[in-house]
């Protein structure tokens, strides 16, 4: 599945929620369901700078695909991390670079992408993109 296809699935999944409370409940559940990130990956290097909630992101490059793991100490942000992983993990660097996180706006959560300095999630998307660029450069060198 491409990143775009993954986004479309998420948008479809969320179209069933018209009540914001239910939507957030679903996000919280998605966060709870992501496989736990091991302790040794909660490093300073993997920390995404955000003022209020802590977000961690780890990336590996396997067989031409970038594999992400992520975590947060805040439940809603962790749910958003889960969504971002569904879109961007196990994708090619090119796909990661080319795909904008439009789903966030489409499911009505764009406040979480505001350029507010308290916002760890926006920084995480940026970091995902940076990994995409870095791994595509690595590929070109190889």
């Amino acid at each position: 599945m491409t990143a775009l296809e993954a986004q479309n699935l998420i948008v479809q999944e969320f179209s069933g929620y018209d009540d914001w409370e239910d939507k957030y409940r679903h996000i919280i559940k998605l966060g709870k369901d992501i496989p736990p990130m091991s302790d040794e990956l909660h490093t300073e290097d993997n920390k995404v700078r955000g003022c209020q909630s802590q977000v961690w992101l780890h990336a590996e490059f396997n067989d031409g695909k970038v594999v992400f793991q992520g975590d947060s100490d805040a439940a809603i942000v962790k749910g958003l991390v889960a969504l971002a992983l569904r879109v961007y993990s196990h994708q090619t660097p090119q796909d990661i670079i080319a795909t904008q996180p439009d789903f966030i706006q489409k499911i009505g959560l764009d406040t979480h992408l505001s350029p507010n300095r308290t916002n760890g999630f926006a920084s995480m998307i940026k970091k995902i993109k940076t990994y995409g660029i870095a791994f595509s450069l690595l590929q070109q060198q190889a």
């Binding site: 957030y24 209020q52 909630s53 805040a74 439940a75």
Partner: peptide
């Protein structure tokens, strides 16, 4: 043990 970021997000809504 709810993170204040979660508290603030829900209240904001």
């Amino acid at each position: 043990d709810i993170h204040p970021h979660d508290v603030g997000t829900i209240l904001d809504n």
